[in-house]
């Protein structure tokens, strides 16, 4: 192939590749852009003005409405989501770390079996468990309580899977051995030596579990009756169902949706490299 022909061809493929990616980026960003524009508009303008451009910039008023309508129940939902996600992910990360570390670093009988049970668990989607959990929790009288959403959320087989990979990679056996020779107990070794070495990977585990709980919808839908226990996802779903009758709620559904995704998008932009670690580990066979 002659040089000029090759150069022209690569210019064409470069343009084609860029155009395709730009189109796809528009596709991915469009709904969020629409949401940002819509949450700045007064209710009446939602229908009467073009959706992809600003009219009256009224976001402060919309936020005020969002947090005061229906006795300010949205604020309660936001707090619930934060509590479910932060506490659930924190407890979940800790127990995943302990378990993954033990599976990676201690030799004992039944270790492979215990690990393959976890691999099986990774393949079980949380939606599939929600109804069986409901049956069990209603027998135990736990339905419609904070516990009904919180307790199942702390279990993350994927977290243990990641913790095991990260523990084998980040904590050298010699270090554990020398801590043992110094007379340190296993828990002291874990919290004072291994935990620090594993910290970056624990952030990854925390993030994945945080997003999983924050985005959870089916479990709270199945478990909760009382509005004051709802996370944001379930609350907005209920409002969205009522907004065809109560048109005042439509604006609050839009502003509320924006409020619910902003913290996650920020978290995700700030902590990009941790996501990549987790996804790379997920792609290993």
């Amino acid at each position: 192939m002659s040089q000029p022909k090759r150069a022209r061809e690569s210019r064409i493929s470069r343009t084609a590749a860029m155009s395709l990616m730009v189109l796809l980026a528009i596709y991915f960003l469009l709904p969020v852009y629409f949401l940002i524009v819509a949450s700045t508009k007064p209710q009446a303008d939602l229908v009467s003005t073009f959706g992809l451009w600003f009219s009256h910039f009224d976001i402060v008023h919309n936020l005020k409405t969002l947090f005061t309508v229906r006795d300010g129940v949205f604020g309660r939902w936001a707090v619930n989501s934060v509590v479910y996600a932060v506490l659930g992910a924190a407890v979940g990360t800790l127990i995943s770390a302990l378990c993954g570390y033990a599976l990676a670093k201690f030799r004992f009988r039944g270790r492979n079996f215990l690990f393959s049970v976890i691999l099986g668990g990774v393949l079980v989607p949380s939606t599939a468990l929600a109804l069986p959990l409901f049956l069990l929790f209603s027998a135990a009288g736990l339905v419609d309580t904070y516990w009904a959403v919180f307790l199942p959320s702390i279990v993350s087989p994927f977290g243990v899977y990641l913790a095991r990979i990260f523990a084998s990679a980040a904590v050298p056996d010699e270090l554990i051995e020398s801590a043992r020779l110094d007379g340190a107990g296993e828990f002291r070794t874990f919290f004072s030596v291994s935990f620090k070495l594993m910290t970056p990977s624990l952030v990854t585990i925390f993030l994945f579990q945080f997003v999983g709980i924050w985005n959870n919808f089916f479990l709270p839908l199945v478990m909760l009756q009382q509005e004051k226990l709802f996370p944001i996802t379930l609350g907005l779903y209920e409002w969205n169902g009522q907004s065809s009758r109560v048109s005042l709620l439509q604006g609050s559904v839009i502003t509320g949706s924006l409020v619910s995704i902003v913290p996650l998008i920020i978290l995700f932009l700030l902590l990009q490299r941790f996501w990549r670690t987790g996804l790379a580990a997920g792609s290993l066979k």
Binding site: A25, F28, P31, G51, Y237, S257, I261, I265, F268, W275
Partner: peptide, 24 residues
């Protein structure tokens, strides 16, 4: 930029994504 744009929907809860699209 392209990587972030494509991965961003992962940060959006499924229900909220569905609500956003139902407006569209």
């Amino acid at each position: 930029f392209f990587r972030i744009a494509a991965f961003m929907p992962y940060a959006v809860p499924g229900v909220i994504a569905a609500i956003m699209w139902s407006f569209l």
